[in-house]
């Protein structure tokens, strides 16, 4: 649910990075943080365990620029990926404007990807959202590793509707901004439709 503020002439939108544990959601945000001009970003907050696994969420506010005199700001959140943190995951999806699903392309994580995608749909439905109606993109992460699932297999399980998809290596930054831009653009197009 976007927030349009006429008083400060700002539009704020919420993007959630979803996916199985250790797929690289937090790394996506860290890369975006590291490569964005300081004046365009806020502080990155990570609520993580001592071993740096996300416990509640990571949060990064970004300012993209102006549209018709309105500052557009995106609030990026990640969810904890581990299966047993489902309650926290559900809470973070509240009011989401767009979702990025980060898939871990390693062969042994195929099941985890599928389980996480099912979990995303279930948790969205509990908030009354349908994934089909939300701006949604998929990122195939860790494509630099040797033991990958075949791309066709990943696509058939995770992306049957052919939403925008990107190959990425979140550590080096490959595909990270392409993913972010794609979901941000879908959100803005959706807002435009809603205004019509």
């Amino acid at each position: 649910m976007s927030f349009i503020n006429y008083a400060s002439r700002e539009i704020n939108c919420k993007i959630v990075y979803y996916g199985p544990g250790l797929c690289g959601k937090t790394t996506n945000l860290q890369t975006i943080y590291g490569r964005t001009a300081p004046e365009s970003r806020g502080k990155m907050i990570s609520l993580a365990t001592e071993t740096e696994r996300t416990l509640f969420f990571d949060f990064l506010p970004l300012a993209l620029g102006d549209i018709r005199g309105f500052k557009t700001r995106f609030h990026l959140y990640t969810v904890p990926g581990q299966v047993f943190y489902d309650a926290s995951r559900k809470l973070i999806l509240k009011g989401v404007d767009g979702v990025v699903f980060v898939a871990d392309c390693q062969e042994e994580r195929l099941d985890a990807n599928i389980e996480s995608m099912e979990n995303l749909k279930d948790n969205l439905e509990e908030h009354g959202y349908q994934l089909e109606n939300l701006p949604f993109v998929i990122q195939y992460n860790k494509v630099d590793l040797p033991n990958l699932s075949p791309m066709e297999e990943l696509q058939s399980f995770l992306n049957p509707r052919s939403v925008p998809e990107f190959k990425a290596c979140a550590l080096t930054g490959e595909g990270v901004f392409e993913t972010l831009k794609a979901v941000a653009k879908l959100i803005l197009v959706e807002l435009k439709k809603g205004a019509g």
Partner: peptide, 18 residues
């Protein structure tokens, strides 16, 4: 009712952001 600022934005406006 009040006007939504998004009603008149164009695809170019969105592309320009990126």
């Amino acid at each position: 009712g009040p006007k939504n600022p998004f009603a008149e934005i164009t695809d170019d406006d969105i592309d320009n952001l990126f």
